[in-house]
């Protein structure tokens, strides 16, 4: 059972206070987009073993969505950060690289 620190209210929240929201940093494709782009946006997920960015909502708390960088195999958490970002911020990338030198953001 995970503990993730909400970047908004600073509470180290237990997983039972959070609700998960799947992969982070998806780019929305709306009307006018190609079938392939839309399918990828809606359905195709890499299901990585290793570094993963994901969405969580502090549902039993401040109610805010935030993002977490986490290793799906070891459950190591590299950091949590604002949901108002389109890509992992430099501090998070640095924290991941410090622990996973082979990893690169693609």
């Amino acid at each position: 059972m995970l503990t993730l620190t909400c970047p908004y209210c600073g509470v180290a929240a237990c997983e039972t206070e959070l609700s998960p929201g799947g992969e982070a940093h998806l780019k929305r494709f709306g009307p006018g987009s190609s079938d392939d782009d839309f399918e990828a946006y809606l359905f195709l997920r890499p299901n990585v073993k290793g570094v993963h960015f994901e969405r969580w909502r502090h549902a039993m708390g401040c109610g805010k969505w935030f993002l977490a960088a986490r290793d799906t195999a070891t459950l190591e958490v590299f950091g949590t950060y604002s949901a108002q970002t389109t890509e992992p911020p430099p501090g998070i990338v640095e924290a991941i690289r410090a622990k996973r030198p082979d990893w690169s953001p693609t």
Binding site: C9, V11, T16, E17, A59, M60, G61, C62
Partner: peptide, 10 residues
């Protein structure tokens, strides 16, 4: 003030 859950409710 801590917002949390009391067993099954917020």
């Amino acid at each position: 003030m801590r917002r949390t859950r009391l067993q099954q409710v917020a």
